[in-house]
Nucleic acid binder design. Sequence first.
DNA 1: GTGAAAGCGCTAACAC
DNA 2: GTGTTAGCGCTTTCAC
Lengths: 350, 350
Amino acid sequence: MEAMTTSAVHTPRGPVTRKDVARYAGVSTAVVSYVVNGGPKKVAPATEAKVQDAIRILGYRPNAAARALKLGSSETIGLIIPDNTNPFFSLLAHAVEDAAAELGYALLLTNSDGNLTKERRNIRNLASRQVDGVVLASVLFEPDLAALESAEIPAVLLNHGGKSPGFNSVGVDLAAGARMAVDHLIGHGHTNIALAMGTNTGHDYDLREEGWLQALAAAGLPEGPIVRGPFSREGGYAVGRRLLASADRPTAVFASSDMQAIGILRAIHEAGLNVPGDIALTSFDGAAEAEYSWPALTTVEQPVRVMAEAAVGALLGARRGEPAAHRTFPTELRVRQSCGCPAQASSATP
Amino acid sequence: MEAMTTSAVHTPRGPVTRKDVARYAGVSTAVVSYVVNGGPKKVAPATEAKVQDAIRILGYRPNAAARALKLGSSETIGLIIPDNTNPFFSLLAHAVEDAAAELGYALLLTNSDGNLTKERRNIRNLASRQVDGVVLASVLFEPDLAALESAEIPAVLLNHGGKSPGFNSVGVDLAAGARMAVDHLIGHGHTNIALAMGTNTGHDYDLREEGWLQALAAAGLPEGPIVRGPFSREGGYAVGRRLLASADRPTAVFASSDMQAIGILRAIHEAGLNVPGDIALTSFDGAAEAEYSWPALTTVEQPVRVMAEAAVGALLGARRGEPAAHRTFPTELRVRQSCGCPAQASSATP
DNA sequence: GTGAAAGCGCTAACAC
DNA sequence: GTGTTAGCGCTTTCAC
């Protein structure tokens, strides 16, 4: 007698597949697909209910690998950044994750550690994983996207000048942002304004440097000293010490990233000097950390969330055949105290 | 005549598959597999060379989805954390990514934003994506792992007391770490030591609180004030202000995370008070940011990289049938200046 | 040492 | 509205 086989149906061995659901609900596997995906065919309400019950009771979850194989899409996007430990990139990663999740995509995170070999390996790895797109903050100005191209995987470059036609990119106007920060310092009456510039592996001329130059020139001010070092707290610290030791110590400095500014701040404190009294400081990025340094940093904020949404949008747009484009977003000056502006009266009451 | 069909072979339409490689190399698809995977069968050196050439020339990259479907493993692990923007978690994410990449696994990053609904959704999502394991820093003390269990996906809980037998977990001895931090403050002569405790969604009694209590009791000191707030800079700031406004203002405070300490530091600075002169401070986690605050934070450092490696190891071990276990790692006190210790002479010379 | 072929779970023609 | 079925690209058993 077959009467007891229902118990076997209740507990299929191993993971539950669409076949188990179909059997349990007494329908074909196609119908299960239609229900799960809401199409492409319509299903009678009664049937749908039976299937939904079966899914719930059996605890069925579609196998994403099978789906990816069939569809040629993993519903996943890849992110390649130098270091997700850097506040700017961690914010970006979070924003990209949110934007992707919103559309049902998951995020594969990879760090290149500013290392070209790793970046290449990550690109290849993501390509073989059938990601539907890659957001890349490259070490290089012209990254090697061959692996992605041959797999027809769209990519979007981050904070890239957009000089490579044919590639999607999103970024901010670095020069304009830098000008804002330097102009603000000029507005405070400074005439000897240094630049602490971050150094990248292969990038060419950074437009923040140009912005600094432009602002100085426009105000008829002489070029201040330039110090260069890594985009990191440590890099900023080293650069800050050099600046302090120089003969014509500047009265203000524009740092190309918040992390560098944080390091510079430490160097200044250690020297027993005061910010902004002895040296004023502005920087770039708008990291959360910049709001809690002492004094709080006046910084040029990048609209990271908007940029992340645009990046994910561009990726998915590219899949639908939209042409590559460069999208530039405006930055905003977050005025705090490191520049010399007075502290706002705190609205919080203890 | 078929002579010219080679040109068609050279440029297979669409993505290159293992079949194209086989045809080009004049072998069967099985042999291509053997070569790509280094087994399970041996291949003659000459044949192998032909296949490797074909792979290179055609630019073949294995399809991970097909492989995942066949093998039942995506060679991917999932990470669920409250917020990858928090330095502790961003460091963890980086370390997990490294440990996973080392073994050929990729990392699917998800943020729960401290939100139970999102955490659940992320768990289910990762389960359906056939991840080979999940590292979970849960909002709850007893997360709902049903989706993972039914899919037979191992999980490892992070910084979980290890009270749930049957679950893998990795963490540090929170009480011992807290004791270290508080003992150090006691060593500086403080007798009124407050606790700034972070609040989690569903976690029960946090052992850092117990450690603080134990240290005080062991020294015969009275219980200091406790203030509670979110594990964030903002939370710390609010809590700091409350502490400063209280009648018997403490002369020292132990904060349960670096982020809170950063916020407290701001509150103290704004009040025109001095750290460590007026109020000494120690905290917990060992974030990079703690080294660059002013003054630099004395903090209990968690060995994040080691923990990440252990977590990934446990996941893969579980796949091989190893029993679940709780691994506890030692913390270390990074002595800097917020506690009252003198600054080390800096070894760097500008 | 090499090849043929079954089948992983799913989608979407196409037939009814 | 529902069912049948052909593959997506890969791994691996089994035959040779």
